[in-house]
Design a protein around this nucleic acid. Structure first.
Lengths: 195, 195
DNA sequence: GTCTATAAGATGATAGAC
DNA sequence: GTCTATCATCTTATAGAC
């Protein structure tokens, strides 16, 4: 008796395409038909991997959060100082925006949150909380080392940095300008440098 | 012979409802059916006022930009100093977010810009350009008066302030937190104050 | 200005064959 | 795992009566 052993290749490809489509067009503007066309299979086959669109959304967000955690772990593991960590963090966003003005997945979903299946909205919330926590640690370490300067709590500063990066993506995209994002990211990081 | 004299009441109500729905749910997540239900009329009647959804979008954005210009004009006309002007500007965004975590209309549309009819996307771009220009003037005036301090160009600072407010809305909404927006807005304005 | 009626197309989803 | 076939529903839009 053979045991079903899905290699998950199609499943991953579905998630890859879904992620790109959501970051470009949004959750409400991509369809199973879009995925099927790109994959060269039928929509019924997508439903085999993800019974509902909400299931797909949750699976995508879980993978995304895990990947993002890995990226943050990789940054923190480096022997760099906290200022470099912040720069590498911002570079993650810049890399995304450079790819055809794509937004952060959770930035896009946050805008659409009122229309999302509840479990998907919950994943978005967790993304922001985790990211804010990580950034707060880096900022606090930087302050302790005398490399980073800011008023108020590290948490509030972390949230603000996140807001700047998310907002810079939105504004640069709305203005349809290719380089405004990196300009804002660089300028804001410069403000955090201790004199 | 009587001349048709549309009072525009229904037309305006359509735009009112459409604006609220877009700021809450997005352009791709509201339908003529939603409008018809709230108004107590049929979708065909909406099409009488706006032949296509793109027409509705353009009309909404034109009205919105005009209203926003009027608000900015009202702020600039006050005898306040530039710092107060910035605070009143931020208050416009806070008022919006206080209303059921609504986003800035153009912040929401900016996220969806890849899926919007071209004329609608053009209006979004104009909104950001106009707003950036107005903010840059206020910032420059504040700097001349020694009340506002910043590095770089007034344009870049204006863009950054806009990004902070848009991003703060997105992050606060994604975290489903009611007061994070005002916290970030207040903190960022404090940074602009000259010592 | 609003209605009924209608249309064509998209969408999320399921049943059952292969 | 993928297919065909089918479904109910939603969506934008038009024609023509009132």
């Amino acid at each position: 008796m053979t045991i079903a052993k899905p290699n998950g290749r199609t499943r991953d490809r579905i998630l890859d395409i879904a992620q790109r489509l959501i970051q470009s067009r949004g959750y409400n503007a991509f369809s199973f038909s879009d995925l099927a066309k790109e994959l060269g299979i039928r929509t019924a086959s997508i439903h085999y991997h993800f019974p509902t669109k909400a299931d797909l959304g949750v699976a995508l967000l879980r993978r995304y959060r895990q990947n993002f955690r890995d990226e943050l772990g990789g940054i923190a593991a480096r022997a760099d100082n906290p200022l470099r960590h912040l720069a590498r963090f911002a570079a993650l966003f810049e890399r995304t925006f450079s790819a055809d003005n794509q937004l952060c997945l959770c930035g896009m979903l946050s805008a659409e949150v009122a229309t999302l299946p509840k479990p998907v909205a919950g994943e978005v919330e967790r993304f922001f909380e985790e990211t804010e926590r990580w950034l707060a640690q880096v900022l606090a370490a930087g302050k302790s080392a005398g490399l980073v300067a800011f008023d108020g709590t590290a948490r509030a500063q972390a949230r603000m940095l996140l807001a700047v990066l998310e907002g810079a993506m939105v504004v640069a995209r709305g203005m349809r300008h290719g380089t405004h994002f990196q300009g804002m990211a660089r300028d804001y990081l410069a403000k955090l440098k201790a004199a």
